[in-house]
Amino acid sequence: MDASAWIQAIANGFALGWMYVLIALGLTLILSIMGILQLAHGEVYMIGAYVTYFLCVSLGVNLYVSMALSMIVMAVFGIILEKFLFRPAQRQVLPPIVISLGLTLILMSFAVTTFGLKEKSIPRLAEGSLMFFDSAVPKDRIIAVGFAVALLILVYLFLKRTKYGQAMIASAQSPEGALLRGINPNRMSSLAMAIGCALAAAGGTLAGSILMLNPSMGTFPLMKGLVIIVLGGMGSLLGAAVGGIILGLIDGILPVAFEPGIASVAPFIIVIIILLVKPQGLFGHE
């Protein structure tokens, strides 16, 4: 295999990896603050992509503006989901699972009936490619990674530098401690859902502009997201970022280096090996 194929593979891996990171970040925020495994998060990602598609392709709004609007729409959607679906099921085990699984079906059916089963596409983020060591890397992938990195940095700064960000971290580390300092747990859950859903919408849009849109496009990234938060360590944002990139690179490089059969099983085997060595995940506590 020549160098240019390798560079392609790594570029694809990075682009994929960052889409996974966006999903995993939201999942891990929601899990650590609300204690809920949001199994419909992949569908939020999918609907986010379709909202961008609707704004951009059907209404002719600029792609970047559409993406920003889609993030806002999905953030509001997340707040509504938290308030009316997840909050009543707080601190229970089965109801949130049933609710999120049901939500998966509802959102998927909604996409099928509204947009149809046929694949759609969002315009590319940019045309053309840049040359790296004599091989072409499509510009849109570079822009997608740039966006994802920028969003991750924004989330990091919000959590580290703002009062509400700190309150979110605190709620995740000690819910009772947060309560006793006057932090409203419901507000923290709303914030977690809003941020998580906005990130998913961004991920869906970026992925949709590189690949295609279809109603089941969220299933696979959700599985990746779940693997990432286990790999990175439950509730660790750094873990989600590093785990996402590792998984993306594995996914990008293995299909080029090995036959497809091995390539699809290998990521899980690698993750199992990592977890055997470090059961709490790469950056997990305890």
Partner: peptide, 29 residues
Amino acid sequence: VKVGIIHVPQSREIFPYMSVLENLRLGAF
């Protein structure tokens, strides 16, 4: 908390993975 009653439970409930400074700032949330 708003009226000025602060409870320090036996389990302390500090935030273990945040710095001492961050913990103190959250005290004034």
